[in-house]
């Protein structure tokens, strides 16, 4: 009896030790992958980075060239997306937080959450059929619009969440003074939630900056500096895709360098946001 009891116990403790160590291994492994990806990007990317690379336009293979126009294109389209997506998303979030405790609010919430999970390439197809086909060509506007559509539900949900964190007493204090609802929201609630909303907005911007699929056939690509929204426009991500899938060694190197730039930008935003939110909440 005691003999079998001890083997049973030993097995039990063995399983415990094994499984608890395995979970730690999972964590270590995943972090190792992150480090491997980032490290590789750093090593491969740094060697091709230069001022020319950051400012030039693409040149025929072997003659150098850079991604200046892609950086500009990404910036323009992201700005356009923010210009459309942030106001609409924040307003929708305000609706959800302030008036959304009804069936309509629940529907919007549900649809927004599912829209967040819809593949971004579908948004690309949607904008293509809606804008590119009638216009007859790809454009920076179409690209920015696709990114805006991706931003709206994300911003709406984070805004709602951030407004939810504003203490109820603050609201009641203002309402008790006879302020109308919209003034309370505008002057009290939104400022109180502002930093949180800004955080969510930054994350949404970081997210769309890394989007490729919705730009593939809306903004397409361009070899030139382009400031016009009705023309095809280059972007960092589409350029990385093109270089990476092409046959040339030098272009692969440029893909790594552009990736280093893109990933640094996105990680910096994420880390800053983390830093600030940790302090605030």
């Amino acid at each position: 009896m005691s003999e079998t009891a001890t083997t049973f116990e030993r097995k039990r403790r063995g399983i415990n030790l094994l499984m608890t160590s395995l979970t730690a291994v999972c964590a270590v492994f995943t972090i190792a992958v992150l480090v491997a990806i980032l490290g590789y990007i750093g090593v491969r990317g740094i060697s091709s980075l230069s001022i020319e690379f950051l400012t030039d336009t693409p040149k025929p293979v072997g003659e150098g060239g850079g991604i200046g126009n892609s950086i500009l294109g990404s910036a323009i389209m992201t700005l356009l997306a923010a210009f459309i997506g942030l106001p609409v998303g924040i307003a929708a979030g305000v609706y959800l937080a302030e008036f959304g405790k009804n069936w309509f609010g629940n529907t919007v919430r549900f649809v927004a959450d599912t829209l967040i999970g819809v593949p971004s390439i579908i948004i690309g197809i949607f904008v293509y059929t809606l804008v590119v086909l009638p216009m007859g060509r790809q454009s920076g506007f179409a690209g920015g619009l696709a990114l805006a559509i991706i931003m709206i539900p994300i911003v709406a949900r984070t805004t709602e969440e951030m407004i939810g964190l504003v203490p109820h007493s603050m609201r009641e204090g203002a309402l008790a003074l006879g302020a109308p609802q919209w003034r309370v929201t505008w002057n009290i609630v939104l400022p109180a939630a502002a930093s949180g909303i800004a955080t969510g907005a930054m994350l949404a911007i970081a997210r769309v900056t890394g989007e490729t699929a919705p730009l593939l056939f809306t903004a397409l690509n361009s070899r030139f500096y382009n400031y016009y929204l009705d023309q095809p426009m280059s972007s960092l991500t589409v350029q990385i895709f093109n270089y990476a899938t092409g046959p040339f060694e030098v272009e692969h190197a440029m893909a790594w360098a552009a990736t280093l730039l893109l990933v640094t930008l996105i990680l910096v935003i994420n880390i800053l946001v983390r830093f600030f939110t940790r302090k605030r909440f």
Partner: peptide
């Protein structure tokens, strides 16, 4: 009146999310 305008604006924004999804389905 301010309340009505304010409500209308944010309601429209919320509605736009549903409209986007509806439009995606319809167009496709």
């Amino acid at each position: 009146k301010g309340d009505k305008v304010f409500h209308a604006v944010v309601f429209a924004a919320a509605l736009s999310i549903i409209l986007i999804v509806a439009a995606v389905i319809a167009v496709m």
